[in-house]
């Protein structure tokens, strides 16, 4: 985290890895999600996949908004999961466990991303 603050512009390696991971997880969600929607199934996966790819992309460029976008997508997933699976623990597991673990990691990157976002804003401000 120190290195992030020292360079002041780019997010650190852990944040980049997480951002790439989120994009990689989003791709199959979008690809198969389109198929599912085309077959008359749920639209949730393609929307969630697109949202987290965008979130990962923003994080890759050091924007804290990426982290917030992921967390919003995750928050929306909770009521959706309850709506689909009710209070059935086995039913909730695939819908919530993985996304929640990622959400915790994303939340941990917010301080670092705040630094890079601020740096990005101030450096842009300097050029203007």
């Amino acid at each position: 985290m120190n290195s992030v603050q020292q360079t002041g512009k780019k997010p650190g390696l852990p944040v980049l890895c997480l951002a790439v991971l989120i994009i990689l997880l989003g791709l199959p969600l979008v690809i198969m999600g389109v198929q599912l929607a085309a077959l008359g199934g749920s639209f949730y996966y393609v929307l969630f996949g697109a949202a987290i790819i965008a979130a990962g992309g923003l994080m890759l460029f050091g924007s804290v908004n990426g982290a917030f976008l992921y967390l919003v997508a995750w928050l929306v997933t909770i009521p959706w999961s309850l709506w689909e699976a009710g209070l059935d623990g086995w039913g909730l597991l695939p819908r919530l466990l993985g996304p929640t673990i990622i959400a915790i990691l994303v939340a941990l990157t917010i301080p670092a991303l705040r630094g890079t976002s601020a740096a990005a804003v101030s450096s842009r401000g300097g050029h203007a």
Partner: peptide, 19 residues
């Protein structure tokens, strides 16, 4: 919605297979 997996990805795979 009864389809399952460890994550949304393998669950989605089964949902597509179901449909």
């Amino acid at each position: 919605t009864d389809m399952w997996g460890m994550s949304p990805i393998d669950q989605l795979y089964c949902r597509v297979k179901f449909r």
